[in-house]
Design a protein around this nucleic acid. Sequence first.
DNA 1: CGCCGGATTGATCAGTTTCAAGGCATGTGG
DNA 2: CCACATGCCTTGAAACTGATCAATCCGGCG
Lengths: 231, 231
Amino acid sequence: MHTQTISAPVPQIFSSARAPVVPSVDQFSAIASCSGLVATEFSYRKDEEIYGEGEPAEYVYQVIRGAVRTYKLLTDGRRQIGAFILAGDVFGLDPGSSHRLTAEAIADTTVRLVKRRSLEVAAGSNVKVAHHLWTMTAGDLRHAEDHMLLLGRKTAVERVATFLLEMDRRLAKTGMMALPMCRRDIGDYLGLTLETVSRALSQLSDQGILVFSSARQIVLRDRRKLAELVA
Amino acid sequence: MHTQTISAPVPQIFSSARAPVVPSVDQFSAIASCSGLVATEFSYRKDEEIYGEGEPAEYVYQVIRGAVRTYKLLTDGRRQIGAFILAGDVFGLDPGSSHRLTAEAIADTTVRLVKRRSLEVAAGSNVKVAHHLWTMTAGDLRHAEDHMLLLGRKTAVERVATFLLEMDRRLAKTGMMALPMCRRDIGDYLGLTLETVSRALSQLSDQGILVFSSARQIVLRDRRKLAELVA
DNA sequence: CGCCGGATTGATCAGTTTCAAGGCATGTGG
DNA sequence: CCACATGCCTTGAAACTGATCAATCCGGCG
């Protein structure tokens, strides 16, 4: 039962020379193998919707390459991005019958997916799978709790500094960060406008805390100072 | 936290005879009975800390009477309240070994508690318990996702309107809402100052959308208009 | 080369915070 | 029973942060 070497190390996403980003313990593979499910692949083009808020939650996904944003909208179009999902990350695991956020590909993206219902059935008989599901949801909750603090109480520069450290931790294996998302996405994640994000980045650049190779290629020069800025 | 109602087929064995405020479906009792645990009681005075952020998560709690706030602090004291926990709600279920937010009694409060470790052991052998734990964490996640949208993208009046509808749903059994928390707590929940909360409430009062019996006793006069305001 | 989308930068605007004063209810002691 | 202190809330005015409006600018690409 199981095997399948799912996940050869996931190839780099954004054309920069980087090491694979998949965590050493791959929960998705672990779950899939526990439950005897075979994961299939699917690809989405940049800005393509993967699922919409309120739609039945049929599948659980793992990003193989590319990146995904999940978000909620207000009636007049104001958008709050809840999370950026990078290579190796799992998403779409909304316990309950429907998705509570919309998911869209930020860049051309390939995912693996399994039927959510199968996972739940597996969880019903396999405690290990059930524990994995709980742990993953708990991880999302932890992120959301941290992000509420950011959105409710941090200043613009503190938000951007926090964002940079998060992205640095998650995708900068070589000291170089290749951001897959545009300034508007960053703003909608941080509860700011794209202009304010741009100004904060310029300010950090002026202070020598970071260096731009290009607008989305950033090298952090002083993580210590950045860490002090996040409050 | 844990304000959603799910249908649990499990009979209540340990539900408290002196807690008529508990919702008809009591997840906490359901879990306790599944796992064969006996819940003990404990009381806290107004503003007393129940557990601190970072402390080992020893117990899981249910409010019998009173109310609790959970929050995170920045280094300079700025506070973000993550949730208000009311009678019947469960809190302290942080998967992982330590609490990620501080919990404090808003008013004199009585709780039931069980050892978290016991719950996890129970979940390891009883899939029904495991599913309950997952469902409760998922409920917290849902709340956090909605709250991120509020904190990141709603205006002051929209936040207060959203807050009023949430509290109305959760504690107004008679059309009258008796808020247990002060304006500062509301502000720290909504990412606003207490003055801005006060001004928004006055504005809604001026518009006839609500009526004050006293500062914390509020009657909603026009839920429809309020619902339009939440955006 | 010139276009185009994304990013930066500048100037002004607006909403919320901050600072400050006063009101109102509750409780306490004379 | 009243005077006064206290905590919480409301309201006003000024200050400030981030938003909005408006030009460029820059890099990639047809």
